[in-house]
């Protein structure tokens, strides 16, 4: 706030309309608009976002079918989640997506960033690999699943290379791996784009110094690139955590092969929450709400941890 205040006082010396001139009628006229301008968005946000979040926290402490009386259950829903093997599997899958898919995506993004740093056609490559990000998860899932069909393109290619008995990719034992690889394919372009923008800000002469000193590629990355883009990497990690926990459509649409919902082995917590409330016989709002709260807690813990991990003085350059 102080930084803003300092910036605000500077034009105030020239012009009375600046907000710092508290007493001027103009400033007061502007102040009167503050709440009318903000209120519609704020009310909508509170009614449809904040209050529902609080309501979910309350529902998670009750046994409720969505209608009729609520029955207070304390932490029973959470206890039941802990004991439910399907939830355990879903939670493990969410963590696997977070760390394994995240790790692979970040490694690949770093690699592509370094390759694209001074490559001809970098803008074209960037534009292409970014594109899957703006396509609906359902569509990506259908395309991805179709590539891995028993008679699909992937297996035909494998047969062409001499593998007579290619794996059944969409069987329960392989499906989650197929989903994870697909997620890496979709997400890499997004993070590569952000990292590229961060790398582009690093002055070229730092790399010239590296060359003069005889640093190899890894040393350049470790001692120049990484420290100078550390804060952006932190932002990426937060963005990834939030979006990874929300992943739903890409997994959901794999149901197309098997019925209403995909096999429980590939569920993550987002699917579990949906299934408990909307796709099981009697809606179990209590445990769906508890699952939602677990997801929210996971987001909260990760954001706090990541901010701590990445908090340090940004190198000025």
């Amino acid at each position: 706030m102080t930084a803003t205040a300092v910036r605000e006082t500077e034009p105030a010396q020239r012009q009375p309309a600046a907000p710092a001139a508290q007493s001027s009628p103009l400033a007061r006229g502007r102040k009167r608009l503050f709440w009318p301008f903000i209120a519609p968005a704020l009310v909508l946000y509170v009614v449809f976002y904040i209050l529902p979040t609080l309501a979910t926290a309350w529902i998670s402490l009750n046994k409720w079918a969505g209608a009729g009386p609520m029955e207070f259950a304390g932490l029973d829903n959470y206890r039941r989640l802990l004991l439910d093997p399907v939830f355990q599997g879903s939670f493990a899958n969410t963590l696997t997506i977070l760390f394994a898919v995240g790790g692979a995506t970040f490694a690949l993004s770093f690699l592509l960033t370094m390759i694209l740093r001074d490559m001809a056609g970098r803008k074209a490559v960037r534009a292409i690999i970014f594109f899957p990000n703006i396509i609906s998860g359902i569509v990506l899932s259908i395309l991805w699943g179709f590539l891995f069909q028993a008679e699909g393109v992937v297996n035909q290619a494998l047969r062409a290379f001499g593998m007579d008995d290619p794996p059944n990719w969409l069987g329960t034992e392989n499906l989650f791996s197929v989903i994870m690889i697909g997620l890496v394919w979709v997400q890499t372009g997004f993070f590569t784009t952000i990292l590229m923008a961060a790398v582009d800000r690093i002055p070229k002469d730092l790399y010239e110094v590296c060359d003069l000193e005889g640093a190899n590629a890894w040393q350049r990355f470790r001692h120049v690139t990484l420290p100078l883009m550390w804060d952006v990497v932190g932002v990426c990690a937060v963005l990834w955590s939030i979006s990874a926990i929300k992943i739903f459509e890409f997994i959901y649409a794999f149901a197309g092969a098997a019925g209403q919902l995909p096999p429980t082995k590939v569920w993550n917590t987002a699917l579990y929450a949906y299934a408990e409330a909307f796709a099981s016989g009697v809606p179990k709002y209590g445990s769906a709400a508890a699952t939602g709260m677990v997801m929210l807690a996971l987001v909260g813990v990760l954001v706090v941890l990541l901010r701590r991990l990445f908090r340090r003085d940004t190198v000025q350059f």
Binding site: F48, Y49, P52, T56, G66, A277, G292, L296
Partner: peptide
């Protein structure tokens, strides 16, 4: 306060929204 909403997954708010 607005930025807080960026971290709330839809699965968290969808039940009360449905009831509402």
């Amino acid at each position: 306060f607005f930025a807080l909403g960026l971290g709330i997954p839809s699965q968290v708010i969808i039940l009360p929204l449905y009831v509402m």
